[in-house]
Design a protein around this nucleic acid. Structure first.
Lengths: 240, 240
DNA sequence: GAGTGGTCTAGACCACTAG
DNA sequence: TAGTGGTCTAGACCACTCC
């Protein structure tokens, strides 16, 4: 038997807002209606709307700005970028990343990739491979896999125009905002290819990072696998 | 000029509760007074107390249990343990950890350690070194450094009695609860000592993890440095 | 000054736990 | 049945932004 489960009003409001976000009713960076407007629309009190928005703000889907309004979160602000970029220089402040696109191609999903992205095996996917340097030091090598249907029309040129800021590109051009991600880390030894591309000896210890990213509704929409050279950088993790 | 800064009532209540937690007025696992009691004590409405408790619960300092009360969070519950234990087996469920204490000694803080733990150089510290295996496989080697004054009287015997569950020991015996931690990860090559102790070849890639842990009020009270063998385990990280 | 989010209150009622 | 946390409301007022 399914449990009918009591669902408070504010959570139903939250679901309605989430649905609006998923549908793209308000796009990343835009303001949603004011609390009083929403309260009138849904026929509830302002307090109930506030509680719904509180939870969405706590999940980083919305951003409140006192006196201005409530906005759909975006990867434009630097603060958000650091939530998804955990690699940090050992000393001092972050420097700009120099991203180099090494490969870009369309392919068909393998069984394994289809499972991860919740596709059918053989569905179209896009793969891109890139190398990233900080301050002239080669640091990162990764492959990014995307579902072809959601990102139809993406091109190497579009990525270059956005200077490789993928999440920014995804939300401005495809209305798909990455909300959260899960990463799996291991220490591995550099193979010949990675060593060549990162300018190190084969066997050098590298941090391997696999990332599965989700958009609204916990829908997986990106798979990454890469290696980080951690000689002068470290991966930040916060436990709490 | 200092900014006077508007501080809402609920945040002042929150600070009062935090101070109670810090002083040990309510110990880990115990219930704090009911919302109505606290509202009466502080001469505010229940809603204001709720908002204060909401934030403390969001920070995992308190745990609400409907119908029962609000309790000081503890490392006893398994759900909490996983927030601080990110190493996960590649396949299937977690198995019990077998912890082996390799060394235990009192020492004086180096300049570097004193900086991290906010002590004066030369103040007493405790160092313990241990090895952890999962399901018979050696996986982890680490050193733990503690401020001697806070953990006065800790002994190898006490650690053994707690089966090496350090955070549990800290809060039951010393009233010190670890609230959050920051970790820095790198990939490194195993040196001769680590290789010997983990049963691998020197040069094997290992995940190096440095952890600084904090108790109430962002006071640093533990420094760890260890290496993980990630052949059959990975480190979980969640971005959001 | 108008509009937005943010705080605080008082009260009613609901859901859950325990004796 | 009593006590706890959880929800919802209506209204007043505060802090902040922009015009």
């Amino acid at each position: 038997m399914s449990s009918p489960r009591f669902s408070p009003l504010y959570r139903q409001i939250k679901d309605l807002l989430l649905e609006g976000l998923r549908r793209g009713e308000w796009r990343p960076g835009e303001a949603i209606p004011s609390e009083l407007d929403l309260a009138a629309r849904f026929r509830v009190s302002q307090g109930t709307v506030r509680k719904a928005i509180d939870e969405l703000a706590a999940e980083n889907l919305l951003v409140r700005r006192q006196g201005k309004g409530t906005f759909v979160a975006t990867h434009g602000e630097p603060q958000v970028r650091f939530r998804f970029l955990r690699l940090t220089p050992d000393s001092g402040e972050a420097v700009a990343a120099e991203r180099e696109l090494l490969d870009f191609r369309r392919a068909r999903a393998s069984a394994e990739l289809a499972r991860l992205l919740e596709l059918k095996a053989g569905e179209p996917v896009i793969m891109l491979k890139r190398r990233i340097a900080f301050d002239g030091n080669l640091v990162l090598l990764e492959e990014v896999w995307l579902p072809g249907n959601r990102f139809k029309g993406i091109s190497a040129a579009a990525i270059s125009e956005h200077q490789g800021a993928l999440y920014n590109l995804f939300e401005t051009e495809f209305g798909t905002r990455m909300v959260r991600a899960e990463e799996r880390l291991k220490a591995v030894s550099a193979d010949a290819v990675a060593a060549e591309l990162l300018g190190i000896e084969p066997g050098h210890a590298l941090l391997q990072v696999e990332r599965l990213s989700f958009t609204y509704g916990d829908t997986p929409v990106e798979w990454r696998k890469g290696v980080y050279k951690t000689d002068r950088h470290y991966y930040r993790s916060e436990l709490g």
